[in-house]
Design a protein around this nucleic acid. Structure first.
Length: 362
DNA sequence: AATGCGGGGGT
DNA sequence: ACCCCAGCATT
């Protein structure tokens, strides 16, 4: 059945006007004070929405304030050095967001005179701007009645309207978009969309929702049946694969430490790290030989001084941290260099390797 | 349609 | 442990 027909069926006997009014009134009185709600500046809304992808509000706030201070306008961000942008993103995760954002801002400056497009097609073509972010910018910054369906919205609507589709599937997001097109307030789409997300964040939470405080409890089908914690339905993802490494803390005669820039694609792209030896490819006894082949340096390797476990969304690094000093050879490795302790903190490091910084002054 | 892509907080 | 979070790009 087509989504529009399903929506028509689902909202039968549902008081849409009452729902809109209750939601928007609740949002206007109960919304949190957040830095990106100071005004409707599309650039600020854009930055906030990118940072908020898969990331909690409390985590984003300090990053947002710092980022806007460093890069207050599209022009400032477009001109900035990529490493500087990554440094401002350091610790926030999903670093391709930062790289895509800068790429998109450059396009806005060059093709649209620095004005964030209010045209859905133009906006949606920008790097890093997907269906959710597009709708969020259009509704919040430009007051256009476009759906902005994120995890909150799917959870709230699945409960209110008792929708049992698997929200892990792409097709289900489109069903909810069709639903929002039908339900959204044409006079205040911004408060409607933000109200849905705010409700999901403050009241209609995943584990133990505060239904007694909910402004639309009266209309919630899941609550009336006592199945609010059974929804939404979401298929579980498989668990992470463990990858073992030896991570080398290599110092030269001057006490400088060897670090390297990761490739510009893939995991932690263009971030910095200490050299890692994958124990899936290299035997622990052959680390010294392997390192000479890869880096052109001979080492005297010490005893392991630390064990670092780092969990990603799709894999787990288990790193043995091993100190070493250079005994000979010539550094022959792209994007690798010895740096002093001052320089090292100016480079963008993923959290996994920040855990190793503490050994800088042994 | 499925997978890769970070990191932190809640339960 | 597991789940989730104001998701997107790539295949």
């Amino acid at each position: 059945m087509k989504n529009e027909q399903r929506v028509q069926h689902i909202v039968e006997d549902f008081d849409e006007n009452k729902f809109r009014d209750s939601l928007i009134n609740w949002f206007k009185t109960e919304q949190r004070t957040l830095p990106w709600r100071d005004n409707q500046d599309p650039y600020r809304v854009w930055i906030s929405e990118i940072m908020l992808q898969q990331t909690r509000v409390d985590t984003v706030i300090p990053y947002f304030n710092n980022f806007l201070t460093k890069f207050p306008t599209p022009e400032a961000l477009a001109e900035a050095d990529e490493q500087e942008v990554l440094k401002a993103w350091e610790g926030l995760g999903y670093y391709s967001r930062a790289r895509n954002l800068q790429n998109a801002v450059c396009e806005v400056v060059e093709a649209y005179g620095g004005i964030v497009p209010s045209d859905p097609d133009e906006l949606g073509k920008l790097k890093g701007v997907g269906p959710y972010t597009k709708g969020a910018i259009l509704s919040i910054a430009y007051d256009l009645p476009e759906p902005a369906v994120d995890g909150n919205v799917m959870r709230v609507l699945s409960r209110i309207l008792k929708v049992e589709d698997d929200i892990a599937k792409q097709s289900t997001r489109k069903l909810f978009e069709a639903m929002v097109y039908r339900l959204i307030s044409k006079s205040d789409p911004s408060s409607f969309n933000q109200g849905m997300m705010e409700l999901g964040a403050l009241i209609c939470t995943p584990k133990s929702p505060s239904c007694l405080l909910c402004p639309v409890q009266e209309q919630c089908r899941a609550f009336s049946e006592g199945i609010e914690t059974e929804l939404p339905v979401k298929s579980s993802k498989k668990k992470q694969k463990k990858l073992p490494f030896v991570t080398l803390f290599v110092q030269n005669e001057s006490g400088e430490v060897l670090v390297e820039k990761r490739p510009d694609q893939g995991l932690l792209a263009s971030m910095w790290q200490y050299p890692m030896v994958p124990l899936t490819d290299v035997d622990e006894a052959d680390v010294r030989t392997w390192f000479y082949g890869e880096y052109g340096l001979t080492l005297e390797i010490g005893e392991s001084i630390d064990k670092v476990k780092h969990v990603f969304s799709h894999l787990i690094w288990e790193m043995q941290v091993v100190p070493a000093v250079v005994t000979g050879g010539e550094l022959d490795r792209e994007r690798a260099e010895f740096v002093d302790s001052k320089k090292i903190f100016e480079l963008p490091f993923p959290v996994s390797h920040q855990k190793i910084h503490k050994h800088i002054n042994p």
